[in-house]
Design a protein around this nucleic acid. Structure first.
Lengths: 327, 327
DNA sequence: ATGAAAGCGCTAACAG
DNA sequence: CTGTTAGCGCTTTCAT
C-alpha cells in the first residue's frame, strides 16, 4: 500500500506538505505542489479516507433514513442527493427503519461517525441519542421530535391540496375522500390530512367523517394499503366521487381496486396522489398528483450538510399536476 | 467522548481486555467480562468504528452499484441486502454509475476502503482498479470484465423466457416482439435477448428481425425507453401479438403507449416484463413478468461478503408469472 | 488470562 | 513556506 509517506519521500517533501496539497489548505509553493502531484501520479497513490475520518472524528457518509425503501419518492430525493453529494465527496447511504429498529440503526450510525443523518421517516429516534449526536456534531435533520435545530424542509402540501379542492369544486365534484394510509397516531405528524380537512371546508366539499380512511402504513406496503383503503371506503358506502391519497403508491393501489371493481376513472371517481413519482405518468389513466420538488429537496439537504447550516426553513411549493385520472 | 480507555479504567482492566470482550475474540475471564460490560453500560460507551476500520484497513460499508436508481428491482435487492447486512453490522450504500463516472465512483470507494463492491450495473470498471482492489482485499462481485473470481449470481432468464414462448405458442400467439432497451453493445452482456431468440425458434414463433427493438437505456429512463420502443415497434408495421420487455419498467412504459393507442391488452397485444417488481401487481392490467428471486439474491450477496466466498455460481431460477396482461 | 506498547494513515499545531 | 511531532481510538502481537 502506498501511503502519504511514500509520496512525501518520492517528492522530497514532508508528509505535512503532501497533506497541504491534497487538502488544498495551507501554503505550499508552486514547486512543491508540482513535485507532490507528480509523485502522486507516479505512485498511483490513493488516499485513505478512513484515516482522515479518524483524525476528524467524522466520516463522509450521509445517512438517509426512510420507513419504506420501496417508495420511489425517496429514490428521487436520493438521486438528487447523490449527484449533489458527489461534488463534495459525500457518500449517501439509505437505511430502512421502523419504529422498533430505529434505535439500533442510530447506534450503528453513531459508531460509524456518519457526518449527517437525514431522517425522512416518520419516527423520531430515542431522546437519549440527542446529546450524543450533539457532542459528535453529527448534522441532523428531522431527528429530534420537534425538529428544532437544523434545516427544516417544509413541504407546503396545503397549497397543492387547496388547488385540488378548488379544481374539483369547479368540476362539480363535491365528495372528495382522503386515504390517509397512516394510523391515527402517525397521521398527526402529517400535514396532509389537516390541509385536506381545511380545504374541503373552504370550498364547500362534503365534510363527512367517513370519507377519511386510516390504515397501517408503513407496516404494510403502500400499494397494498391503497388497495385495501379503497376497498374499505367502498364498503362504507358513503358516496364519493374523487379520492386524494397520501402518496402516489397508495394512489396506484387504490386505482387498482377501483379498476378491478369496474369503476371508470376519472368519470366515476377521480384519483389524485402525492409526490409526483415518475411512474405516475406511465400508468393508465396517468396519475394526477402533487409535485414536491424532489430535486430541490435533495440539493437543499446536501448544501445544508456541507455548510452546516443552522436553523432555517426551506419552503417547498406543492404544485397540483392534473393528469388523466382527474376530470 | 468516552473511549475504550475510559471503559478500561472504570472496569479496572486494560484496553486490550475491553477489546477482547467487545470483539468476542481471545480469552477473557468471566469476571473481567462482566466488569467491562457493566462499565460500558454505565458510561454509555459507543465504540468508534472508524478507528476499528483503520486498524483493519477496511470499513463496514458495502457499495452497491446500479445504473439506474429509479429501477425498483434494485431496491428490492437492496432491501434484502440491508436486512441481512444488519445482522453483520454492515452498511449498504447505493451508488448510481454511468459509463463516464464509474471510475470516479470506484476511486471514492477505494479511498473509503469499502469492504465490498457489488456491481449490479452493466458497465465494468477500468482494468487499472483490479490490482488495487485485490491488494486491498475488497470483495468484489461482477467488477471484473469477465467476472472471474468471486460469487457469480446467474439469473437463468432462459428458463422463464422458454416458459413464456411455450405458453404463447399454446395460446396461438406466434409473433412475440422483444424490447431490448439496451443499445447494440450493452445488449451483448444481456442473456435475455439470446434466450428470446433461441426460444422463439424452438417453439416456432416468428423469427422476423424487426421484432427486436433496441434503444439507449440506461441513458434514457426505463419508462421512456419502453414507451418509445413500443412506438417504434408499431411504426415498423411488422405484425406482432405480444411483447416481451427487458424489465418491468420498460414493460410499463410500453403498456402506456399501447393503451394510449387504444390497443387492448391482452386481447390485441400481450405484455410481459421481467424482474417482478411489486408495482407490476398494481397496474391495470396487472403485469405478467419473470420472477428472479430478489430476496435470495440480496441474501446471497451478503453471505458471500461475510464469508469471503471464493468463486461460486449461484443459479437463480427465473419463473414466469402470468397475470392479466397475458391471454 | 491480561497488560504494555507499537502501530494503522492521516491531520494540525507548532516551531522554524 | 515547510518539517517535526503528537495524537485520533482501536487492534494486536508479545510478554508475563
Amino acid at each position: 500500500m502506498v501511503t502519504r509517506k511514500d509520496v512525501a519521500k518520492k517528492a522530497g517533501v514532508s508528509t505535512a506538505t503532501v497533506s497541504r496539497v491534497t487538502s488544498g489548505r495551507g501554503y505550499v509553493s508552486e514547486e512543491a505542489r508540482e513535485k507532490v502531484q507528480k509523485a502522486i501520479g507516479a505512485l498511483n497513490y490513493i488516499p485513505n479516507n478512513i484515516a482522515k475520518s479518524l483524525t476528524q472524528n467524522r466520516s463522509n457518509v450521509v445517512a438517509v433514513l426512510v420507513e419504506d425503501l420501496t417508495n420511489p419518492y425517496y429514490l428521487q430525493i436520493l438521486d438528487a442527493m447523490e449527484r449533489e453529494g458527489a461534488k463534495y465527496n459525500l457518500i449517501i447511504s439509505l437505511f430502512a427503519v421502523n419504529k422498533n429498529d430505529i434505535d439500533m440503526v442510530m447506534t450503528g450510525l453513531i459508531e460509524n461517525r456518519v457526518c449527517a443523518i437525514i431522517n425522512l421517516a416518520l419516527f423520531a429516534c430515542n431522546e437519549k441519542y440527542i446529546s450524543i449526536l450533539e457532542e459528535l456534531e453529527i448534522y441532523t435533520v428531522n431527528i429530534k421530535p420537534r425538529n428544532v435545530g437544523e434545516l427544516r424542509i417544509h413541504l407546503n402540501h396545503a397549497l397543492g391540496i387547496d388547488s385540488i379542492c378548488a379544481y374539483l369544486r369547479d368540476k362539480g365534484r363535491r365528495r372528495l375522500a382522503y386515504l390517509a394510509a397512516l394510523g391515527e397516531e402517525l397521521v398527526r405528524q402529517d400535514e396532509r390530512l389537516n390541509a385536506y380537512l381545511v380545504s374541503r371546508k373552504k370550498y364547500g366539499l362534503s365534510e363527512d367523517d367517513r370519507l377519511v380512511v386510516f390504515a397501517n402504513y408503513p407496516e404494510e406496503r403502500a400499494f397494498a394499503v391503497g388497495y385495501q383503503s379503497a376497498k374499505r371506503l367502498c364498503e362504507r358506502d358513503v358516496p364519493f366521487d374523487s379520492v386524494l391519497c397520501m402518496n402516489d403508491s397508495v394512489a396506484l393501489g387504490a386505482m387498482k381496486y377501483f379498476q378491478e371493481k369496474g369503476f371508470s376513472i376519472p368519470a366515476q371517481v377521480c384519483v389524485i396522489g402525492c409526490d409526483n413519482i415518475f411512474m405516475g405518468q406511465y400508468v393508465t389513466p396517468s396519475l394526477s398528483t402533487i409535485d414536491v420538488e424532489t430535486e430541490r429537496q435533495g440539493i437543499a439537504y446536501i448544501r445544508a450538510i456541507v455548510r452546516r447550516e443552522g436553523p432555517r426553513t426551506e419552503e417547498i411549493r406543492a404544485t397540483f399536476i392534473p393528469r388523466e385520472s382527474i376530470v
